[in-house]
Write a protein that binds this DNA or RNA. Structure first.
Lengths: 158, 158
DNA sequence: GACAAGTAGTTGCACATACGAGTATACTGG
DNA sequence: CCAGTATACTCGTATGTGCAACTACTTGTC
């Protein structure tokens, strides 16, 4: 009974085939697929949610192994509220700790713990293996660096 | 009191600085930022969640303007359960309808309605404007097509 | 110095939406 | 015709968002 109600088969008149729209879709798609497969991999192999991995990686990348809540939220593209709760969970698991910031007592430093570092090492091993399968096998050195350059540009402020 | 407990400041011994890890992070980051800003844009301008936009776009791209649940789940990289709920909402809003598939009664076809098409047109206008700001201004034609090529490769089956 | 304005982080709430596991149903191949 | 597989749905759980309120602190201005 629910058949062909209100559905007109239109030709694709609209710019859904626009080159830029396609590129954008490709970017989103590629990412979604990679994120999903890596997330699954990390979860099953290390019991580490992708979001946690992301936080730990950001912390290790930072010069001092610690960041303010603010910076984390920005780095992992979450809301501040969401970040508070995410860090709560990470702290509960013992992977990070909150430290008072001496120079600004409003701020809180989040530092990675030894346990967090160990976990991250595990996860990075899995990640590197994953990258071997999904990245290195598909793109060679030159292509990877080209891609990195283009993404940098795409990420740059106007 | 909670200071430097269990935190040893290690040098970055581990491969967090690996070129491939960085590239992967860049990809995730770029995407998260773009998705967030486009999502916000679509939500405020068209009152259309990004996931809905994604579904409508996939439907329009399909040859007949309709897809099976399965195909949608795959195309938008969601679980089947999540897709069911998502399509429920879209159907509730009148943007798509479910049709029984004559040849396989297990399957369900989801078709875009005229209302859905109209909504998608609105959204595509916003999207194109967005792309002008965030994409075209940062990457020229050649760069865009290079990027598309690289992403295609990254997306390809092994 | 004191006071207004701004900033950092947390928290509660309503809500959206994902996932996984389990279930019902329908097709398919021996 | 039955066992096995595929498809979609339901349910409980986890986690995210935005918003608003609140605390604690910092900064700019008179």
């Amino acid at each position: 009974m629910r058949y062909n109600l209100e559905v007109t088969t239109l030709p694709n008149t609209c710019p859904s085939g626009d080159e830029r729209v396609q590129l954008f879709g490709l970017l989103m798609d590629t990412n979604a697929r990679l994120a999903r497969s890596l997330g699954l991999e990390l979860e099953t192999s290390c019991d580490l949610p992708l979001a946690w991995f992301d936080v730990l990686l950001q912390l290790r990348r930072s010069p001092e192994g610690r960041l303010k809540m603010n910076q984390i939220a920005d780095a992992i593209v979450h809301s501040t509220g969401g970040t508070t709760r995410l860090i709560d969970r990470l702290e509960g698991a013992g992977f990070v700790i909150r430290q008072n910031c001496p120079s600004d007592r409003r701020a809180i430093h989040v530092a990675i713990t030894d346990l967090g570092n160990a976990k991250l090492d595990d996860a990075l091993n899995v990640h590197l293996e994953y990258l071997g399968v999904h990245l290195t096998s598909r793109l060679d050195d030159v292509e990877r660096s080209t891609l990195a350059g283009l993404l940098e540009k795409l990420n740059s402020p106007l």
